[in-house]
Design a protein around this nucleic acid. Structure first.
Length: 586
DNA sequence: ATAGGGTTAG
């Protein structure tokens, strides 16, 4: 008796300490030999060791599990958990099958069973499975388990069922900070970024009974970055300072990103400078920010400083450096860096790096070279790469190559509405009007839906949204009045609307061609209406800005004395005194 | 005596 007890303890501690698979096999043999396989506790410990990381040997675990005469809830849970953590989809499904088997065999289910099974379903995006588990939770009266409810929310939002996730949230009786954070992440995941900001406001107001924590801030900063919501971001920053969250390196890094993605490179830089410890992420965030804001030379310089500081760059750093080169036309520098990625830093260039190079060569007019680079790639070029080249073909009106590129996209079955728009603009800027008509006809017949352009502008903490020819703003008539007035003022100053090269929304109607009012123009008109001279207007657009709106902004900046900062789909335009930081190179 | 929730920064 005493010796078997001794043996039991010995085996348990051996299980804890063993690091090699062969030891695990030996222990297994011992367990069986000493009849300890009838000891549920020992078996559970052993199963957990085999099934869960670091071993995570599902084949072996399944063998152990299948030999069990009547597995307990805990043993089932361990297996389901192990399945929920594996990368293989087929195995993830096994987790749900075990859940069903438990029910069939009348094995009691506990909250952990549900939790692990939902994770399997979430990974598998198995909506019906999750719904079943949800039903089981309600039947067993576990719906007041807050932890379980957040898992469920996460599951529903991962399946794109935001409404269901919100419903679970509403039904959660005790909502703690994590629950609110999950709600925010549900919104972010489903593109409801502004609602995520509203949640933050709600939490700060105190009516929810819990305050934002560091995770909340991280989420909300990301939301601000994507919405270009500078004032909101500053408020979050202030809140973080109050709460002492702004010391953590990850939060500071995301502050750098937020400020640079809101066009505020000086603030981003201040944060960066104030950091006692800077890691790869900090440097990369800075470099990418500089690149995006058109400070290519500074970005390269930051990269050199980073190397001098002894921080090793990784793949993402190079994406930042190369995009700096492409946005600023630094062709030779870009080629040099691209060479070094492999040779000096031992990193295999990835698809993003190639994308930057194609962009770089393409914008610089070296279209054939870009095409050859694509053909020389080890991996199969994806649609983004071809799309980048198509963009360059449009800029340089290279119709023959453009047609070849669109065929590559069609071959990949990846042609998007935006690609046809590029094609359209390419033809129109080359003056090939029959082709323009042809593409238009094709788009109409095939119901190609283009992404509507949308511009946002934050003023006094309020986000205003404008689409093309938008009439939904409360001050709509004033805005159009202002726009007409501005138009005539600008024409006096020499502004000529550019309608030939950009077809964007030039619509053929019975009365002829009509230039539509892009959201950018409406936003600027509104900005001039409600702000005094000297103000900075910050706009963000979901697509690329068109040449005409760009011209318009340049004239506005000098005639109306406003600095206009426009965030594009891919970069910033800092427009002041009639000039843009991009030097018309984009 | 499986031990559970969210997300990690670029």
């Amino acid at each position: 008796m005493a010796s078997s007890q001794y043996q039991r303890q010995g085996l348990i501690s051996l299980m804890k300490s063993c690091t090699q698979k062969s030891q695990l096999h030996q222990i297994h043999a011992h367990v069986i030999r000493s009849l300890l396989h009838q000891d549920q506790d020992v078996v559970l410990r052993f199963l957990a060791r085999v099934a869960l990381p670091p071993f995570h040997d599902l084949v072996y675990a399944r063998r152990v599990f299948n030999n069990l005469w009547s597995p307990t809830t805990y043993q089932y849970n361990t297996m389901i958990r192990a399945y929920s953590m594996c990368g293989d989809d087929d195995l993830t499904k096994e987790g749900f099958l075990l859940y069903k088997k438990m029910k069939e065999d009348g094995v009691p289910l506990d909250p952990l069973t549900a939790s692990f099974t939902i994770k399997c379903c979430a990974k598998d995006a198995c909506f019906h499975g999750g719904v079943q588990v949800h039903g089981g939770i309600v039947t067993r009266g576990h719906q007041h388990d807050g932890l379980l409810m957040t898992t469920l929310m996460d599951f529903y939002s991962g399946c794109g069922r935001l409404d269901d996730a919100c419903m679970v949230f509403d039904e959660t009786t005790v909502k703690d900070t994590v629950a609110w954070n999950v709600l925010i992440s549900c919104y972010l995941r489903n593109g409801r970024t502004r609602d995520a900001l509203r949640v933050f406001d709600h939490m700060v107001a105190g009516s929810s009974g819990c305050e934002p924590d560091d995770v909340t801030c991280l989420h909300v900063l990301q939301a601000c970055a994507s919405l270009n919501a500078l004032e909101f971001g500053e408020r979050v920053h202030d809140y973080m300072k109050e709460r002492g969250y702004d010391d953590a390196i990850n939060l500071r890094n995301s502050l750098i990103t937020m400020y640079s993605r809101c066009g505020c490179m000086d603030k981003a830089y201040t944060i960066f400078q104030g950091m006692p410890v800077k890691n790869v992420v900090s440097w990369t965030a800075l470099i990418a920010g500089l690149a995006m804001n058109g400070n290519g030379v500074e970005a390269i310089d930051a990269f050199r400083q980073m190397l001098r500081a002894g921080v090793s760059p990784d793949a993402q750093t190079f994406t930042g450096v190369l995009s700096a080169c492409s946005h600023c036309g630094l062709v030779d520098e870009g080629l040099l860096v691209f060479e070094k990625i492999r040779k000096q830093f031992g990193i295999t260039p990835n698809i993003h790096h190639y994308g930057c190079m194609v962009d770089l060569m393409g914008r610089a007019g070296q279209l054939d070279r870009a095409y050859e680079l694509i053909l020389s790639m080890d991996s199969k070029p994806d649609s983004t790469i071809w799309r980048t080249l198509l963009g360059a073909c449009r800029i340089h009106r290279h119709v023959t190559l453009g047609e070849r590129v669109i065929n590559h996209l069609i071959e990949l079955k990846a042609q998007e509405a935006g690609d046809y728009v590029l094609l359209l603009n390419m033809y129109s800027s080359a003056g090939e009007w029959e082709k323009v008509t042809e593409v238009r006809k094709f788009m109409k017949e095939n119901g190609v839906q283009t992404t509507p352009g949308c511009t946002t502008m934050e003023l006094g903490g309020v986000l205003h949204e404008f689409t093309s020819d938008d009439t939904s703003h409360p001050r709509n008539s004033e805005i159009y009045g202002s726009l007409n007035e501005i138009g005539s003022q600008l024409r006096i100053a020499g502004y000529v609307p550019i309608i030939s090269s950009e077809l964007h929304n030039l619509t053929v109607e019975d009365k002829g061609y009509r230039l539509s009012y892009h959201g950018e123009k409406l936003a600027i008109a509104f900005g001039i209406l409600v702000t005094p001279p000297g103000t900075t207007l910050r706009l963000a657009n979901n697509l690329r800005i068109c040449v005409d709106c760009h011209e318009f902004a340049k004239f506005v900046s000098s005639v109306y004395d406003r600095m206009v900062i426009i965030r594009d789909r891919s970069r910033f335009h800092h427009v002041r005194r009639g000039h843009c930081s991009c030097n018309d190179y984009w």
